[in-house]
Design a protein around this nucleic acid. Structure first.
Lengths: 231, 231
DNA sequence: CAGCGAATACTCGATCTCAAGTAATCGAGA
DNA sequence: TCTCGATTACTTGAGATCGAGTATTCGCTG
């Protein structure tokens, strides 16, 4: 909504971390990892330092001290400012209350399904589901460990959310693969036939649509709704 | 997996579009919009032109013609190359079969829940759910229209997936809000008490954790598992 | 106590991204 | 036929992003 001066989500995590106490950038990164927040917010060292610099320029954080231990590189310790606290507040409010579109990898793939033959798609979807299953199981094992240590659930709630999304994606992928294999998904027969014809006759996919009656024996009324050169 | 020369998902859509027939960039963008693919793949004109140029440099597409109609700017028509077709194939295979981590907005927010008072969080989550509900309903109305026109479901399958993710997120947000309000979520009482104490006494949140027995009357064994300055 | 892999703490620069701008044409109404 | 907003088609530059590199120190093993 609001145009942020520093929009990388990592900047949000930096503000959140410095809200606890002043730290140097590398310390922020280790803390995020120790708390597993790097599973929810993408952490990249290159971004970290440029984001901290951008936050400083915007007046959201300020350098309070630079220390040097032995021959190690200098560490600059940053603290959050009042403006930074306000920025974090507004940002968290937006993250929680105002959904903004995020694009997922699988959606892009699904948008171009017909480019592969149906059975190949079904195989790939099942492969995906299997990998995601592993990931979900791993996260749940981690939750069990946390629970057994007496940690309250609120500390890993974002991870619970991720598991629910993973389970949704797994179920969707498996169900879609099954529907493709059984020709239950509308359009699959036509799709399958297209790929068979292309393989057998060496025709171009586009040509098949130009004369559906010739190649499929039926007319597709929706072809006139969404022509291949859809304007 | 494979390091792509042009990694923007829009480049995938460009390759997919040019796989049908040669087009000029703007035509690609109108086709993507007409087919609703811009709901699954982020479309931005600035990115579009730079992506096409990058694809050309990588040898995945080539300019086949530049036409000028009247005094309009020239339109350069591009076609996909064999290398481009191979790239698209590999990319689609990866998109479908190999899940890669994508970070969602809500996860980032959930990771910093304790920064707001419980009731404020619950309000915001319900607000989010209401907005998402609208979006899901809108998509489903669109699906009904498509169905009524006789279009096969495979043409909007990516949108069905989006609806399922939205429904998962809505359910999660509503359930979490409810659990927070009823203190059903572990850690909420402690969380609520922290915010009350900060408001009443003006204490710093960090100080409360240093002497839990004083402020909360009980000790938190997990404090020693994940100290505030977690290494 | 020498060697070596892991951890610490950054830096660099090539891409990538994107809002905003430009400039022509079309089409509907007045 | 004049006007004015919408559409077409693209450009620009400022800033964001990220993988890969670097140099030091720590800690373990043999």
């Amino acid at each position: 909504m609001v145009r942020r001066k520093v929009s990388n989500p990592l900047a949000f995590a930096v503000l959140g971390s410095l809200g606890e106490r002043p730290m140097h950038p590398y310390e922020i990164s280790t803390m995020l990892k120790a708390r597993g927040k790097d599973g929810s917010i993408k952490l990249n060292y290159g971004s970290l330092y440029s984001v901290v610099t951008a936050l400083e320029k915007a007046g959201f954080v300020e350098a309070v001290e630079t220390v040097r231990e032995g021959n190690r590189p200098e560490r600059t310790i940053y603290a959050i400012t009042d403006a930074g606290r306000a920025e974090f507040d507004g940002w968290l409010e937006e993250l929680l209350g105002t959904p903004e579109k995020d694009f997922r990898q699988l959606e892009a793939g699904l948008a171009y399904l017909p480019a592969f033959a149906p059975d190949r798609v079904a195989d790939l979807l099942e492969q995906r589901a299997a990998v995601l299953e592993e990931e979900a199981a791993g996260l749940e094992r981690m939750h069990d460990v946390m629970r057994s240590k007496g940690l309250p659930e609120i500390f890993w709630i974002e991870s619970e959310f991720r598991v629910e999304l993973l389970r949704t994606e797994i179920a969707f992928a498996r169900r879609l693969a099954e529907r493709i294999r059984t020709d239950d998904l509308e359009g699959t027969e036509f799709w399958r036939r297209t790929h068979d014809l292309v393989a057998e006759l060496g025709v171009q996919p586009g040509d098949l649509l130009k004369d559906p009656v010739k190649y499929f024996g039926v007319d597709f009324p929706w072809l006139r709704e969404v022509p291949p050169d859809a304007q």
